[in-house]
Design a protein around this nucleic acid. Structure first.
Lengths: 346, 346
DNA sequence: ACGTTTCCTGGAAACGTTTCCGAGAATGTA
DNA sequence: TACATTCTCGGAAACGTTTCCAGGAAACGT
């Protein structure tokens, strides 16, 4: 129950008016000094700064953005799938760095791949009058995104393609990355390459599947080897067991997502087949190089994606918001670690 | 004078005044309806809601918090070490969930373990008038945190102990978790247990080291086995090599942090000693169970830490901000996976 | 019937800034 | 010296809300 010592007198209540009075100048002058605007005599500026320091003045960014002509709040928002998942959080970090460089702050939220939740987040963020929005869209919110754009807030989509006016998109080269990797397996002599994929509602999942098909150009694909709509490591593990238990099992597996790769590794290890069945995963994950064998992956560059998305957004905020939409594709890299180099068993 | 409000489609410019005019009521009434305050006739409320919908009115939270009596912005800030590291991002997610439950938003920033950067973030956040602050403190910012508290913003520290008036802290049980784990190694018969630790400026690093010492109660410790101030996986890898190259090398290793554990695993694997030298790490990491042998760890619960920190903060924001500081300790769990169960070589 | 209380309502005054504008002072030009 | 121009500065009007307050209508008690 002890009162806070010192400064309690007027808790964080010292305003520009107070500074002006103490410095013996007008309110407008204080504003100019604080904002570093030119056209105020050096000795006055000094007096103002002294007064501000003496009083412990703290500029109120909230109030300031209210009146400010451009209404900018110096905040951008980031709608991720889940701030805790590695892809999202690395992207987040890249965005933070780019934003900091222009002294902008970042608000974040996790949509959990749920369109309803994504809508809710977008709504909350725009109510706060953020200057811009970077979204990993669930894919069912095009209308909302268009509305946001129309309302004046800048939007950039990351990781997944969206085709909207004045909405930039930056994605990885999902299709080509997958095509090249599956092609490698075929070139190695594999004839039965299984595919494990995520929900087809997700753009990246569809692209990767398309890459798988393209790699087979001409050849027949046994549909029983293609498993989509798999949502977890456990489900992937089951799927692998089923595939291997079937007759004419695959000699190689392509897993189109992080967690699915891990499920596949687990299944193969359990059966002691990790050195017999080839495996390539999409998206790198920590420690992939330390498993036996090392897991070969098609690595994307989430930091690069985030960084480009941020730059596009900040560009729009700073300057032309009405430039046409741009679509940037970030290449993927194949990392050969062993599991993808296993030849077909003969 | 004013043009008819129906025709103008000004971009995001429709204000409460417009709604009031269209509904034919006063400004105050609109405010009451929007904020769901009681004491407005049902038919008027309906008219207001209709008008708002027709005009596409969007409530301006920024302006609203300016005048609002409690000056609350509905935002809390989170200063992490790095939003991209797993510990931070899992904690972040827990905070987000707790915040969302009270419809609060979360601003985040990464300090990179740099006090200057932490100060900068704290400063920026308080300028935005956030309602509260959760910080993983670098350990050199007590003065700033106290100042923030004095200025009226609520503060909770996570992961690392801080002793300040009215600042709650929630940490893992670093010392006891480490003590018990090292004790296990000793009980297994190990007599030379090495310790790899992070920068001693970090509270958790000091605590874990203290736990290591406590476990040895009575026994002599060979100081050459204790390596502190190690900051990266690479450095840890080097340290392990040096230890093993020395005469009288350790038969077991305790790594007091995530990255150091990974470095140690790498070093042991490279020498083919992963089944001869015991290893226990502090803090779990993904895939630890899939390595050969599985890596035993002292697991902390970052989600629980974040969740408790958020609840403490939200509690202070909602109610008594002047309750005395509370210090919550979250227990750790030992996960036996093999590497910690290797007996000393005889 | 009359005074009191209670309820609704809308005008106006904040909130802490930025920006507009006009008044002097200072400088430049003829 | 006179006049136009530029430069500084402060008062006052926004910004979009919430809250205070006072007035009128309706409900109540006697």
């Amino acid at each position: 129950m002890t009162p806070i010592p010192g400064g309690e007198r007027r808790r964080g209540k010292v305003t520009m008016r107070d500074v002006a009075d103490r410095a013996g100048v007008g309110l407008a002058t204080v504003s100019r000094v604080i904002n570093g605007k030119p056209g105020v005599a050096a000795h006055l500026a000094e007096r103002v700064r002294d007064a501000a320091r003496a009083l412990g003045y703290r500029h109120d960014v909230t109030a300031s953005s209210l009146r400010r002509a451009d209404r900018r709040t110096g905040t951008i928002a980031l709608v991720l799938e889940d701030v805790a998942n590695p892809f999202s959080s690395v992207l987040h970090r890249a965005v933070e760095d780019a934003a900091r460089a222009e002294s902008m702050l970042v608000l974040t939220g996790s949509s959990d791949e749920n369109p309803e939740r994504e809508r809710e987040l977008i709504d909350t963020f725009t109510l706060r009058r953020v200057d811009g929005l970077i979204v990993i869209p669930t894919g069912r919110t095009d209308a909302e995104l268009a509305a946001v754009r129309r309302q004046g807030t800048h939007v950039v989509c990351a990781d997944r393609l969206v085709e909207l006016d004045q909405v930039d998109t930056v994605t990885a080269d999902n299709r080509e990355g997958t095509r090249a990797a599956v092609r490698r397996l075929l070139d190695l002599g594999h004839r039965r390459v299984a595919f494990l994929g995520d929900m087809a509602s997700i753009w990246t999942a569809r692209e990767r599947h398309a890459g798988y098909l393209e790699a087979h150009a001409g050849r027949r694909i046994d549909e029983r080897l293609v498993r989509r709509e798999i949502r977890s490591a456990d489900a992937a593990e089951c799927a692998i067991h089923e595939l291997l238990d079937g007759d004419d099992p695959p000699t190689a597996v392509f897993t189109a997502q992080n967690l699915l790769t891990i499920g596949a590794v687990r299944a193969l290890q359990r059966r002691g087949l990790q050195d017999r069945v080839a495996l390539i995963g999409f998206d790198d994950f920590p420690l992939a190089d330390m498993l036996r064998p090392g897991i070969s992956v098609v690595a994307q560059d989430p930091a690069e994606i985030g960084s480009i998305a941020a730059r596009l957004l900040l560009g729009r905020i700073a300057g032309g918001g009405d430039r046409p939409a741009r679509h940037v594709v970030v290449p993927t890299t194949y990392l050969a670690r062993g599991s993808g180099e296993i030849p077909p068993r003969r």
